[in-house]
Design a protein around this nucleic acid. Structure first.
Lengths: 266, 266
DNA sequence: GAAATAGTGTCTGTAAGACAGTATGTC
DNA sequence: GACATACTGTCTTACAGACACTATTTC
């Protein structure tokens, strides 16, 4: 038997090896369930606020807590594709090909799921346009929640659901989804110095004030005193990550000079 | 049956649910194998070069190619722990608790492993002190290879093994390990503006020239003309990521003024 | 002393951020 | 015209990077 193993591993051809390997039924060691989770951001145009999609769990485990959309990955499906598919299945929200998605990383803390050994690959999605979600299952209702920016760097962001209740990361999230959300916010904040993919939630064009308010969700330095002209200087003139695409043409927007419109570049 | 499901999911307690869930044998869907891979860097003190650990595969698949150390994750083992364990098992190199390790991310391209559905969680390790590796298996020989920095930003780094042969990312790597290595280099380069964990490979203290040569491996801007004084200015004075810890005391180092010693902070 | 190496201080160009002033809208 | 809003240009401060100069060593 050792000779057989050595023959196929080292002396035969690769296709001989693979035929032999698959005939061996080496599948008897334990494997984890692998899931994906998706931290989805979208800009609610009427409230003019950034929102995040959470699912309220009516069923065990973590009954009554909020969770991220997600689910099991299919055989030979890329993690990003699984995230798109599961998001559609759970919330009827379709993530188009051109939508920006990042992988945040794999979360594998032991016993993170009480049902058994499960590893999750977390993603984040910058969705546009904003769409209401339709829950496919009464037990798991998807809900857009408004993000309340962290006032100071010490504090954490929190969320307000459609009933006006506050959702705290420490108390109200299922599994280790609070960790996943914290890591996602940190990653987006760190990237703002050279990457503005998050502006895609604002749609094809947007104003510098919208950018400022969006960035403020992730980094308190972009507060109401932060100069809009500097956003243009940094992201349009220097980094070329945004570009000017004209002005607001329809009047009656509000008092004041017409807003310059920016757009995400490339 | 629907009523039973609904009872345990929504009406019973969580522990009732979990007992029921585990009795259901819902394990009949297919699961992937989950592996970890580890991009390990260490500073070879005699050559004064940064090296990376690769394993030459004598067996199929990818016979004759180089691969990263790695292997299967154990049930309820954190990915980082699995990376440490597998590194020890394959190369007899022990990664201590305090050694810096980053997770790079999950790689899930379909059919990335010809043996079957496999997802890998890639890590990178900044090892100190440098140790020679002992291969546990004749079929997979671990080898420290020297990193040849990319001359221009357009080019890729390549590697030189102990026999003096050049290893190219495009031709000589098994699985999708070239992708993993590229992503790792990119991640370290982007982090250099605010994170110098990589300096841990240099040990408890090191000179500014060592830092410059180390950073040059990841970012061509740190070339031989890059001013050493600016490294001190940026990382010691402004960012406080490194600190001065005295001078080289033993003479007979080389001609010239005694070198200032720096160390990784925190 | 010559050569080699490294640290110090200064200079310059650029960029971030603040802000005063100006332009353009509504009511 | 009063007021609201947002763009423009300038000023200040800070810092990255370059470089000339000085310090300390070996041979």
């Amino acid at each position: 038997m050792r000779n057989e193993k050595q023959y196929y591993e080292q002396e035969g051809t690769e296709s001989e090896f693979l035929d032999w390997y698959k005939s061996q039924d080496l599948q008897n060691y334990e494997k984890p369930s692998v899931t994906i989770d998706n931290v989805i951001f979208a800009y609610q145009p009427h409230l003019r606020k950034l929102q995040m999609l959470l699912i309220k769990r009516a069923a065990h485990p973590f009954q009554g807590k909020y969770a991220l959309p997600g689910g099991f990955i299919n055989p030979n499906e890329e993690a990003k594709e699984a995230a798109k598919r599961e998001t559609f299945e759970e919330t009827s929200i379709r993530i188009e090909q051109e939508t920006q998605m990042w992988q945040i990383g794999a979360f594998s803390t032991p016993f993170r799921d009480p049902r058994g050994w499960t590893i999750s690959i977390a993603h984040t999605t910058f969705l546009y346009p904003f769409v209401e979600s339709k829950a496919s299952d009464d037990a798991f209702k998807a809900e857009w929640v408004t993000i309340v920016p962290a006032a100071l760097d010490e504090e954490e962001p929190c969320f307000v659901n459609q009933a006006g209740e506050t959702i705290h990361l420490n108390d109200d999230l299922a599994f280790d989804h609070a960790d996943i959300i914290r890591t996602t916010f940190k990653r987006i904040k760190e990237a703002l110095a050279y990457n503005v993919d998050i502006t895609q939630v604002l749609g094809p064009s947007f104003t510098s004030r919208q950018v400022q308010e969006l960035f403020y969700v992730f980094d308190s330095k972009f507060d109401k005193h932060y100069s809009l002209s500097n956003i243009v200087k940094i992201y349009v003139t220097r980094l070329h990550l945004l570009e000017k695409v004209g002005q607001v043409t329809i009047k009656k927007q509000s008092a004041g000079r017409p807003k310059m419109l920016l757009s995400y570049k490339k």
